[in-house]
């Protein structure tokens, strides 16, 4: 069975801006895969390339072995997308919106109606089935996007920041639902800003930055790549002059040593706190210090994420990407304002 997603040297250029830079990524069938990255990293561009909303500039992209351009019908049929934007048909009650979407995917009318009811119940907004999208609350809108992605019974479910701006209860409901879907065999690609979400849900995560893949690993593997901090409280104070010597005396395992203002405690940054702590204790005792207390703080995935996506040229690229995002947001607002005016003028 071919991978659910396989891209090779995928490139997308917008004029001078390279949104995707030779991105090669493989997501296996049945995986729960996370895409992490700051704004402007290229996550949504990547997703939109798979579903046909963005035309790639170069490279290859396949979904279950189907080229996203040459075999676009098969590729799109396999995908259910819950995007960030509320891009839902405003003319029809949500039940009909789902029926239409299922119909476009070749589901006969009767079955489409059954499926629409089923997914509305599954995401918990069945009682709103005769409402139009604009009358739903923010959380319900999010649920509907998920329902629309599910109504075609996709083999690959793509969730583009599904929990952005939703309350804790809904976030947990969505987590439970997608976990259940994944256990039923659906491959899931999730983009998120919430590190906790990726850590909790994903089998593997790819960290992207500036259109590039920085790394792919399991959340646990990623965490081992960070540094830990060992905090030590001492019986006696360390003199100001002794701090500089400590870093040298402790050897290569101590990447950084800082002492408190009072000089009665110190923090040592090391690769693996658990295995390094005994050696640190021995070394400090050998230097004549008495240890009162010791605590190890592990690096969070969030800190690792920040480390991995921090780069020299990021300031320039990120600021331009961020401006572009702001612009898009602003345009979106303008669009909505004009749209409201148009709605008042009537419908052509």
């Amino acid at each position: 069975m071919p991978p659910a997603i396989e891209t090779t040297d995928l490139v997308k250029e917008y004029g001078d801006l390279r949104a995707l830079q030779e991105l090669s990524l493989t997501v296996e069938e049945g995986e729960f895969f996370g895409l992490l990255g700051p704004n402007g990293a290229g996550k949504t561009t990547f997703i939109n390339t798979l579903v046909g909303l963005v035309r790639k500039t170069g490279g290859d992209a396949r979904v279950f072995g189907h080229d996203v351009e040459d075999d676009y019908r098969q590729a799109r049929d396999a995908i259910g997308l819950a995007p960030q934007e509320f891009n839902v048909d405003r003319f029809f009650p949500i039940r009909e919106v789902l029926e239409h979407k299922a119909g476009y995917h070749g589901v006969p009318e009767d079955e489409a109606a059954e499926r629409a009811d089923e997914v509305l119940k599954r995401v918990g907004i069945y009682d709103k089935r005769n409402e139009r999208f604009d009358w739903l609350s923010g959380g319900m809108k999010r649920r509907l996007l998920l329902a629309r992605a599910l109504v075609t019974d996709p083999d690959l479910l793509i969730l583009d920041e599904p929990t952005a701006g939703v309350d804790v209860q809904l976030r947990h409901d969505l987590w439970d639902l997608v976990t259940e879907l994944n256990e039923e065999g659906t491959t899931i690609l999730l983009t998120t800003h919430y590190i906790e979400e990726a850590e909790r849900l994903c089998d593997r995560v790819a960290i992207m930055n500036e259109g590039r893949k920085v790394t792919v690993a399991t959340p646990d593997d990623l965490k081992t790549r960070g540094t830990d901090t060992i905090s030590v409280r001492l019986e006696s104070q360390i003199s100001a002059g002794a701090t500089a010597d400590l870093e040298t005396d402790l050897g290569a395992y101590a990447h950084e040593v800082t002492t408190s203002a009072a000089g009665e405690s110190l923090e040592v940054r090391v690769d693996d706190g658990g295995s390094t702590a005994p050696q640190l204790l021995n070394d400090l005792e050998a230097m004549g210090y008495e240890i009162v207390d010791l605590e190890i703080s592990r690096t969070s995935l969030e800190e690792i994420f920040v480390d991995l996506t921090r780069s020299e040229d990021r300031t320039v690229t990120r600021s331009s990407a961020s401006s572009a995002d702001d612009g898009a947001e602003e345009n979106g607002e303008k669009k909505r304002d004009v749209e409201r005016e148009r709605e008042q003028e009537g419908v052509a």
Partner: peptide, 16 residues
């Protein structure tokens, strides 16, 4: 209107 509100994506992302 579909482009403006982006719901034409429902059609464009389908296997039609």
């Amino acid at each position: 209107h579909g482009r403006w509100n982006e719901y034409i994506h429902e059609t464009l992302t389908s296997p039609l």
